[in-house]
Each structure stands twice: as C-alpha cells, then as structure tokens.
Design a binder for these strands. Structure first.
Length: 577
RNA sequence: UGGGAGAUCGUCUAACGGUAGGACAACGGACUCUGACUCCGUUUAUCUAGGUUCGAAUCCUAGUCUCCCAGCCA
C-alpha cells in the first residue's frame, strides 16, 4: 500500500513515538484489532483497522486479528469469515490470528489466582439482585452477602461452576473491588458467568465464560500487546483493565500462561496500555450493529452486503475501493472528540481514488435515439478512445460508431433553460470523440414525447481534422445503437434522507427516514468493451459517475453495474436541471 | 445530584506561550472534446467570563454546554 506520509502526529502516534523513545516495552510496538464476531464490519471499524494495523506497520511492529469470542450466545462463524475477508480487502494482513477463546485456560487459571488472593468471590445473587445491590449513578452500592466467603469455599464453588453443577445465571464470579466506587465498573464486576451453551470454537468444553473486561486485558497481555487501542466508551473501563492486570501480575506468574506454550501461542508477556479514541460516525447513515442487523432482518435492505449498507462488504459491492476508505481514515484523523463526518467527505475520497484508478467508458442510462442523417444506412466504423484522460498507461480501446446512437435523454431539451450547453433544436453539440452534430428535426410520439432526434454531422470536425478545433459549448456522450450492449444499471443513493437517522427525539426512528429512492434499477446501454470485464471492475461512465461491475450478479452476457458515486455536477447543483 | 471524557470555520482537524493553518463543503473565476479532473481566488472558527503575560486557542480561576457509564453485552 502507498499511504502517504502522515502530515502530523495524532495523539496516539505521538504516544507510541514517546514510548519508543523512552524504551518502554523494550521499544516494541504491538497492536490488535479485536472484533466480536457478532455482526459484519462497517466503516467505523475501518478506522480501528487502519489505526491498529497502520501503527504497527509504521513502527515495524505487529498487529494481530483477535476475535473477541467470549459470549457464545451472540457469536457465529459466518461473521468470523466475513471479518477476515473484510480486513484483507481493506489491505491489511494480520501477523497472527487469535481468539480470546484460545486463552480460556489462562483466564481460568488467573481466576483461581484471584480467588486465592482474596480478590474474587463467587456470588449467588441473581441478576436482579445484583442490580439492586449495585446502587445508582449517584448512590453507592452495597456489598453482596456472599462477598466474604473464604478462599477455600470460593475455589470449591468456582470449580463446581466449571464442572457444570449449577444452572445458567445462578452464580457469577466477581472481582472484589469497591462497591462504593463512583466508577460503576469497579463495583465488584462479574468476571465469569454460567452459560450452558456450545461455543463456536471450544464446543462444549466450557459452561462458564469470562466477561469482556476480564478477558480483554489478559488477552492483550498474553499477546504482548503494547498499545491497546479502543473507543471512547471504554474510558471508564480502563481502571478495571489495569486492576485486573495488576492483581493477576502475569509477568511474575509464568505458571498462569503455561498452557499456551504447548500450543505455540507464545509472546512476550506485556504490560499493555489502553488508549481510547473517538469512533468514526457518518451522517445520513446508521452504524450500530443493532440497527444494521435490524435493517437486514426486516428486509429493509437486501442483506449485509447491500450496496447501500455502511458495512465493508456493502461499500465494497457498491464500488468503493479500499484505498478510498483508507484515505477517509487518514483524512478524519484520530482524536478524543466525538464527531460526525459529512458523507461528502467519504464521497470525495471515493471520487479522488476512482478518478485516478478507473478507466473511462461510454454508457447511456436513459436512452434517446439520435440519428445522423448524413451517414449512409449501415455505416459502421471503429473509433479509438483513450482509456484515461490523464494517464496514458491505461492505453486505448476501440469503440464502435454507427449512424444510429443512443444519447442521454437529459442531454436534449426542446425548450432549454438559460445556460443549457447541450443539444437543442437547430443547435450544435459535440459528440464525444466523433465531431459536431447539428439537430435538424425531431420525432415525437402521440403524447408529444420526443422519441428521436435527427442530426447532421459536420464531417470537418472529426478528430484529427483542423475543423475539430472548432468550439461548441457542449460535449455529450453516446453509444452506438447497433453495437451497444444492454446492461442492468443499479443507481444507488444514500439510505436515509436525514442527516441524523439516529435522532429519535421527534418520536420518529431511523425506519421513518429511509430514502425511498435509495435504489433505482434501470436498463441502459454500454459500449461493448465495458461488458467484457470481470466482476468488481470499476469504470467511470463519462459524465455519469463511477460504476462497478457487480461482485455477484455481473457477467459478460448479462452485465450489471452499480453506481458507486456520481460525478460532481455543478450544472445540476446550480438547480438548472 | 456520582464517576469519566470533550469543547477551534458548515464538517473534520492542526497550531504544544509568538502570523489561528490544512482538508472536505460552499461560493466566484480560469481551463476543458467529460458542466468531470485540474488550477486560481473568496467567505466562515478558538464555548463564556475573569486573571497571569510584552504576547493566550495554549497557562490559572470560575462557569456553560455536549458525550459516555447503573448487562451475568462487547
């Protein structure tokens, strides 16, 4: 990848630089991207991926992909596969693929140590009772009546929990910290719960599963993670993260991680530092897994990879190149400020990337017949077009040209507004790569609708001739009606028609703000060389936008193109259209 | 009324006591065989009030506003 050198050091990069200068972690840099496999990755995750893998790459460090699979009731292998694919697609490769479940024995051994040390206890309170004992945001909690059990009793109970003697929810293992803490995460948080369910990785080996706060910090430590980057909402979990690592003291208790070496899961045990940054939010979309899941489940979209979804598989199918997402992440920066990025920033990144990387083609999505009267019936020739206006390395292609063409219906107006630069009765326009045509007459149907325009071609203005220098105000695109290939064109727009679909303060929910025009399918015509390409080939259809051959539905016999993004259109924006 | 965090152009983001800069957006213009791209230009910001200082976005004091936290989710 060719990410440009960073313009400045954001606070996390600066921390890493400072740590290395101070010799912290022996100068090592190790990060991890730790998704829970309970949904598809979205654009927000791209920020975390770029940050974690990017920092590791910049400093010659390592970055693991770690599935945070501590809750088997919500997780699924389908998500594991999609997540791996999305990370690779974004342009990153993990040093090691790990699972929190790889460390279940370590978590367990650490829990027994905490019990031995009087730092954890088995609590028999029900979930409701725990809630009642926890207090509120402004009132301290009360100690559990089971808080002072002996280490022996706790150990016996905990071992029997593991052995499966107790039903779901009947007991938890809790850290013994401080029920009066202002930080609710420190009010004796549960670190193990009983769940008699099969785990996608460990099968039925366990019926007790560790909680996130407890498992995550230990996972980081045993992987030798130096900088544990996460989002802002974990800020007040950091004291618990640090408490666990301090009390367990892995570096001085090699017996706790002994189970790992036999499986080759070794790393220098580290003292990781959790650092929080703000999420990437986009306007005109929703990003929470719950809402994305609902859109899929309620069939409001066609699946997780619907091109309107902000999922990575969705934007991939839409035609956004991975480099555009990397550019977006570079552009939005890394800070601790809550922020919402304008969708236009993303679109700008997509256009910038595709403008450089996509070959040009001609296509017509709303066809109107144009006949060149001064060409003989059956006239046929082959024109040569450059594939890219600014990059000769793209080479040239052949484009068939004939007497009857399709042009874009909006490029002709019988009664044009002021400033209209295209074809009008009696007016002239340049046909891209062909020459200047003059509109001589119209054909209308019984409704008065124009069905064809008849023109004459000024043959002195064909490319290469001196007359080609003659200026006309507009140039329009076309395809040969006799040679063009029919294609399904899917025109996508933003899924929501309000900037903040999450805002339900007016009683409406994101479901009420779905944009009914977010997907329009039309039949268009494309030049032959646009049809014979593999899926996911990106083109600029000149004057229309950037389009990509659908990843699944496209083939050369039945071309299907998705519009990733329109071109900037200062004419339409001026409201003249 | 507890704990944690954050406030700089419309939106992001720099400036680490010394010219408030950049990107995206918007607007105007140039160029153009894509009303694209590119180029040029313009508009718009330090939450408030005090204080320290030759000098404050930056340091101090007091306030204001916003976000997160009461899962046996992550």
């Amino acid at each position: 990848m060719t990410n440009e050198a960073p313009q400045h050091n954001h606070f996390i990069r600066q921390t890493v630089i400072d740590d290395r200068a101070a010799g912290k972690h022996g100068g090592r840099v190790a990060t991890r991207f730790p998704p829970e496999p309970n949904g598809y990755l979205h654009i927000g995750h791209a920020k975390s991926i770029c940050l974690n893998f990017g920092i590791a790459r910049e400093f010659g460090g390592r970055c693991n992909l770690r599935f945070d699979d501590t809750n088997p009731t919500k997780e699924d292998l389908e998500y594991v596969e999609s997540i791996k694919q999305d990370v690779l697609w974004l342009g990153f490769a993990w040093d090691e693929l790990r699972h929190a479940s790889d460390y279940f024995e370590v978590f367990y051994a650490c829990a027994e140590k905490l019990i031995h040390d009087g730092k954890a206890y088995v609590c028999d309170l029900s979930a409701d009772e725990v809630r009642a004992y926890r207090g509120t945001l402004t009132e301290p909690g009360r100690n559990s009546p089971f808080r002072d059990r002996s280490a022996e009793e706790n150990l016996d109970l905990f071992r029997r929990m593991r052995a499966g003697e107790f039903p779901n929810g009947s007991r938890t293992l809790r850290a013994k910290i401080d029920m009066s803490s202002g930080n609710i995460n420190l009010r004796d948080p549960a670190i193990y719960r009983i769940r008699h369910v099969e785990h996608q990785n460990t099968g039925n080996a366990w019926c007790i599963y560790p909680m996130y706060d407890y498992a995550h910090c230990i996972s980081d430590a045993v992987e030798g993670i130096t900088h544990s980057l996460c989002t802002l909402e974990f800020e007040d979990h950091r004291p618990l993260y640090n408490w666990c690592l301090h009390e367990i003291d892995l570096p001085n208790h090699p017996e706790l991680t002994g189970s790992l070496s036999a499986r080759g899961l070794t790393a220098p045990i580290g003292q990781p530092q959790q650092i929080e940054f703000s999420r990437l939010n986009l306007d005109f979309t929703v990003m929470s897994k719950r809402k994305l899941m609902a859109l899929v489940d309620e069939a409001l979209v066609a699946g997780w990879d619907d091109p309107r979804m902000p999922t990575l598989s969705g934007v991939r199918r839409r035609g956004f190149p991975p480099a555009a997402l990397r550019l977006l992440c570079e552009r939005v920066g890394v800070t601790k400020q809550n922020s919402v990025i304008e969708f236009s920033v993303l679109e700008g990144c997509v256009r910038e990337e595709l403008d450089a990387s996509a070959a040009r083609r001609l296509a017509v999505i709303d066809p109107l017949k144009l006949v060149i009267d001064n060409l003989p019936d059956g006239h046929s020739e082959t024109l040569t077009f450059p594939n890219h206006p600014k990059n000769e390395a793209f080479g040239n292609r052949s484009v068939p040209f004939s007497r009857e063409l399709w042009i874009e219906r909006e490029d002709f107006m019988e009664l044009p507004p002021k400033g209209f630069h295209r074809l009008v009765p009696g007016g002239e326009v340049r046909l891209r790569g062909v020459g200047i045509v003059k509109c001589e007459s119209l054909v209308k149907d019984t409704n008065g609708q124009v069905t064809a325009v008849h023109c004459t071609l000024d043959t002195d203005t064909r490319p290469g001739l001196p007359g080609a220098e003659r200026k006309v105000k507009g140039t329009i695109h076309w395809v040969s009606a006799t040679d063009a290939i029919a294609a399904e064109i899917r025109l996508y727009d933003r899924l929501f028609n309000v900037a903040n679909p999450d805002d339900d303060s007016d009683g409406k929910t994101y479901r009420d703000h779905l944009n009914p025009d977010s997907r329009r399918v039309v039949q268009g015509w494309i030049e032959p060389s646009a049809a014979h390409v593999p899926p996911e080939t990106a083109f600029q259809f000149e004057r229309l936008g950037f389009f990509v051959a659908d990843r699944y539905d496209h083939n050369e016999h039945k071309p299907v193109f998705n519009r990733a993004v329109t071109l900037r259109d200062s004419w339409a924006k001026a409201g003249k259209n």
